[in-house]
Design a protein around this nucleic acid. Structure first.
Length: 603
DNA sequence: CCGATGATGAATTGGACC
DNA sequence: GGTCCAATTCATCATCGG
């Protein structure tokens, strides 16, 4: 697609472009937005790679690249030695002090934690603060994390400021526009940590950058490539490397074992779930968000933060069908009285693909397939496997068995003849994922595209199980806003549950996918209206208001945003949540917020 | 141009072991 | 604690033939 992307991915620092000016700019102006300014990229460990400046060690260079002055770096190294964490700590402290509007005595890089008084009265820059917040919407106590940040960064002289003022000051010193900090604090609430606030600000900037109705010169500069991700990662790393460590090590969301979420129909050990959903998260509408469970570190923490801190429900679809599919779901649906789709799908390879039973060797212990992906094994590979197995009468030696099994697991190969393995057919994909046969067949879609669309889809039985609680609640049918619809996994799930679809607004980039959904809609004789959009970014407030006006509001907002920058199979651009496609998650959040506010206004 | 094909690892987690 | 091993993973790209 975009050829230039690979160039952006480079870890090399391009000193010949205007980016250099921006870097120097950040050095001498205040420390501006670390994540959205400039185009430089830092490799994962913080080492600046390749282009070396004579006379400077890479240790110094990496701090120069971050925008610190040579003088400060030298000072920090002198005091702390060549320890990255300590030096960064010192530099950030110095930066906070330098950028502070008040006169500062020189301070040691490691400040003693200061005791913050709860006295919120201050004459300091009163007008400035008046613009920033309104007094009664905030309590005087802030959360532990925010507090500790200030203990680390803010000098004692500002301890007379309220918690909130200090947070604003801190973020302003980091280069975040005060207005945006203010908005973020209102939106995230008084309990929000600095990390949450910066996340929100970043998302807001990103959403604005993508708003097609904003003039170009108003948009913040964003880099959707890996550079932005790395800067962000670096920022998080900065936070995490601060002391006291325990406070910044926000607990990472862990995957449950077994991965059955809040319960599956097949396991007798149903997890007894009493979960509390924050009031803000209550509908209308109900919402349901999905993505890969095995995302890079911290991604689900971020996703959860943006979706009201709701705990993700991690479920492996191998408890529903014959193929694994480890996914996380965040939703505000009730979890009591779920029921599965009938008939129950086959749960083993044997049952799902009976013709393979005859050829299945005793030394292949698989009963479940691995995750169905977007590409299949090559003919050359199956040929190699045939030759390897053919060379022996009876059981091949362990060495060969291991090779064959490894490849079969990797590529989801099944036994279709004597010594013959093969990748799954597209219609087998459809069946395993719970779609009607030929759902993706014909109408101008290629075989390759079928694999791709199916590999990117929901497992219908899994999602339907979660959505089943809606059936009794909406006996007269539902209005559904379906984002990133793909081949219509959500629509198929609701339909198979017997839930009437009154109005479905479906947003899907791919034309072949839209055709598939449209075709399914007609074939199943739907009475309701199916409205197409091709781009989530075109769904702004005005358009949503129109849609909500015309259909009377949405009952369900459902969708799984692009996973390709999160998925383990991606060797090229696994850039995390800020990746080119996966960052569309923030549009899900944006649209959810818009729908909620429009609907609450109209009630 | 389109569609099919084959080559291309790393990140993460969990368990065994020391 | 640390270290190694095993398992898993909604993919991307250049290339080639029609």
């Amino acid at each position: 697609m975009d050829k230039h992307l690979s160039e952006e991915d480079s870890d090399n620092i391009d000193w010949d472009t205007e980016d250099e000016l921006e870097i120097q700019d950040t050095t001498f102006s205040s420390c501006r937005d670390l994540r959205t300014n400039g185009q430089y990229a830092i490799s994962g460990d913080g080492e600046a790679s390749s282009s070396s400046v004579p006379g400077q060690s890479t240790f110094i260079q990496k701090f120069l690249v971050m925008g610190f002055s040579e003088e400060s770096i030298a000072k920090a190294i002198e005091q702390n030695g060549e320890n990255s964490d300590l030096v960064l700590d010192a530099l950030l402290t110095l930066k906070a002090i330098e950028d502070s509007p008040e006169e500062q005595p020189s301070a040691s890089p490691h400040l003693e934690p200061c005791i913050n008084s709860d006295d919120s009265s201050s004459e300091y820059n009163e007008n400035f603060l008046d613009d920033v917040y309104d007094e009664d919407s905030w309590s005087s106590d802030s959360d532990y994390c925010t507090n500790s940040v200030k203990q680390c960064y803010v000098k004692e002289e500002s301890s007379s400021l309220s918690e909130k003022e200090q947070t604003i000051l801190f973020l302003a010193n980091m280069g975040y526009p005060v207005e945006e900090v203010s908005i973020a604090m209102e939106r995230c609430g008084p309990e929000a940590s600095v990390s949450e606030l910066t996340d929100f600000i970043y998302a807001a900037q990103m959403a604005r950058a993508e708003d097609p109705y904003l003039p170009e010169d108003v948009k913040p500069k964003l880099n959707h490539g890996s550079g932005g991700y790395k800067k962000r990662k670096m920022f998080n790393q900065l936070c995490k490397s601060k002391k006291p460590r325990a406070i910044f090590d926000e607990e990472t969301i862990r995957l449950p074992k077994p991965m059955i979420g809040f319960g599956v129909p097949t396991e007798s050990v149903s997890a007894i779930v009493r979960r509390t959903i924050p009031e803000q998260a209550f509908g209308p509408p109900f919402f349901y968000y999905e993505n890969v469970a095995l995302a890079p570190k911290g991604v689900w923490d971020t996703i959860s933060r943006f979706l009201y801190d709701i705990e993700p429900e991690f479920v492996d679809s191998k408890y529903f069908c014959a193929t694994a599919r480890k996914r996380g779901y965040i939703h505000n649906l009730p979890t009591e009285n779920r029921f599965p789709l009938l008939p129950l799908p086959p749960r083993t390879i044997n049952e799902a693909l009976p013709l393979t039973k005859k050829w299945w060797p005793s030394w292949d212990p698989r009963t479940k397939l691995n995750c169905l992906q977007t590409a299949i094994g090559s003919a050359r590979l199956t040929d190699r496997i045939r030759k390897a197995v053919e060379a022996f009468d009876g059981e091949p030696p362990m060495r060969v068995q291991k090779f064959v099994l490894d490849q079969c697991r990797k590529w989801n190969l099944v036994w279709v003849g004597r010594n013959k393995v093969a990748p799954l057919e597209p219609d087998e994909f459809e069946m395993l994922l719970g779609f009607p046969k030929n759902h993706t067949r014909g109408g101008g879609i290629s075989r390759t595209d079928r694999y791709k669309s199916l590999g990117n889809s929901f497992q219908v039985d899994t999602v339907a199980y979660h959505l089943s609680v809606l059936k009794d609640m909406f006996p007269n049918g539902m209005n559904v806003l379906s984002l990133f619809s793909g081949i219509g996994g959500a629509e198929v799930a609701l339909y198979r549950l017997g839930i009437q679809l009154n109005n479905v607004v479906s947003v899907e980039k791919s034309e072949v996918n839209r055709n598939i959904v449209r075709s399914w809609w007609e074939q199943t004789n739907q009475r309701g209206n199916l409205i197409d959009f091709d781009d989530v970014q075109q769904l702004n407030g005005d358009r949503l208001e129109q849609l909500i006006d015309s259909c009377g509001g949405f009952d369900l907002l459902i969708g799984g945003s692009p996973c390709n920058n999160l998925a383990g199979s991606n060797r090229v651009s696994r850039d995390g949540l800020e990746g080119k496609e996966s960052s569309l998650f923030y549009d899900y959040v944006r649209i959810l917020d818009l729908v909620k506010s429009i609907m609450s206004r109209q009630r």
